[in-house]
Nucleic acid binder design. Structure first.
Lengths: 232, 232
DNA sequence: TGTGCTATTATGTCTATACAAAATGACTTG
DNA sequence: CAAGTCATTTTGTATAGACATAATAGCACA
């Protein structure tokens, strides 16, 4: 056997099977860790690890003293990876190109300040650029960078490296919020993406923080042919 | 201190801090588990747990014998929960209403068959319905159900229970694929959602399988005010 | 010179034991 | 009867020690 005195994986999978086959039904209490350890012939710690993974996946809910029960509405969650635009494009076998449109230290509109939770006096850098796949516009990027958090951005050469890549390499973050929505392209977005004004566009927004400190707010606009796909 | 002989959380956070503050730089090898355990005054198992969490989060990469290094491109992934429409609406404090528009056993268009990977002869149920939040259209749902996989759907009362909820309770799945995109509303979608034809709409599509067996394909159309938000 | 074996090393996992923390329910007390 | 207290139960986490496994580097040999 491969290492298997008994693997926590095997135990986890067996328990997942019991749940998916309704041997353990939604809402029901399942045996305690001790009992399971005895049943599987493993240490309690091993069973605990298996149970923790199932709990993290949302299949079960655990509470001290109350025990473990099968989740009533298996709160499933899907994951999607956060790619670099360039990798995303090259991953599709297309040629990547990048064009810097503008880059300026600038007073942000109120709404940007508000979303970043910053005061009036904080200096921000505004960068606009375009990512192309096989010479066709793929994504229009409109970004604000908090220069208090990332002062080095003043010296960054965004003509050579897209702010996306530069920030990944130079400004780590610990928190992020993503928003996805459909919108009508405004005139500028439309013409940059080769669409008419009012065309539907797919908009992804991302705000990142390092601890409490806001790093950057970016709005990424895609033509409607864009699809975000993910598997469970 | 709370329980802290030394918590794996504290160790994890301290190591995350070192990474985000570039004390440990991207690509660099960090000390081995033994050394860290000595440094933090903890058991190796505890350090191991902390490291495993960081690895799962994508901050570090670990390989046997080769050691642990800080990830070059922190390939992060975000998670989003898959809610029931009803919960989604009620969670916002709005009143949920549901309207069945049509429900028929029907020959699907070629594209539906293809996406589900089904042959010509497989019987499918086509259900169309509308979900409302505070009496305003919130989501138009257009669904195909594989009756070979879920024969009970023939008898389901979709006037009383939305297919969404009915399936969650009656048709478990193991695999799912999600697609998100922006599109222009066609005439029918537009009028159902109270929008003009050609308005931008946010479209989410989901296909689910139980093992290899396709269960259902659903297209969920939202007005452009809809936002899908998730945090890392 | 290259190829395959082998020792070494770092991570991966398991066990047994112990104590911590949360939640419950029974019990005590005003 | 209400409110607070405490014992009990179940999960949560830490520890030391052991063995497993992957990957590398170096050595031996053809």
């Amino acid at each position: 056997m491969t290492g298997a005195r008994t693997s926590f994986r095997a135990i986890r999978d067996e328990m997942a099977r019991r749940i998916s086959e309704r041997q353990w039904r939604p809402g029901a209490l399942i045996p305690g860790e001790e009992a399971l350890a005895r049943e599987f012939g493993a240490a309690r710690a091993t069973v605990n690890r298996a149970l923790q993974e199932l709990a993290r996946a949302g299949l079960i809910e655990r509470r001290r003293r109350a025990g473990t029960r099968v989740a009533l509405h298996p709160v499933r969650e899907a994951r999607f990876v956060i790619p670099l635009v360039r990798q995303e494009i090259e991953g599709r076998g297309a040629a990547y190109q990048y064009r810097l449109l503008s880059r300026r230290e600038e007073r942000p509109p109120e709404i940007v300040r508000a979303r970043l939770g910053l005061g009036e006096s904080v200096p921000l850098m505004h960068v606009r650029c375009l990512h192309l796949a096989d010479r066709a516009p793929y994504q229009y990027e409109d970004r604000w960078i908090n220069l208090d958090a990332v002062p080095a951005a003043r010296e960054a050469d965004f003509a050579a490296t897209s702010p996306n890549e530069w920030l990944v390499a130079n400004a780590p973050f610990t928190e992020a919020e993503f928003t996805f929505a459909a919108a009508a392209a405004d005139g500028e977005e439309g013409s940059l993406l080769g669409l008419g004004e009012g065309s539907p566009v797919f908009v992804a927004e991302r705000i990142t923080w390092l601890g409490d400190l806001p790093i950057t707010l970016v709005r990424m606009v895609h033509p409607p042919s864009h699809r975000m796909v993910t598997r469970l």
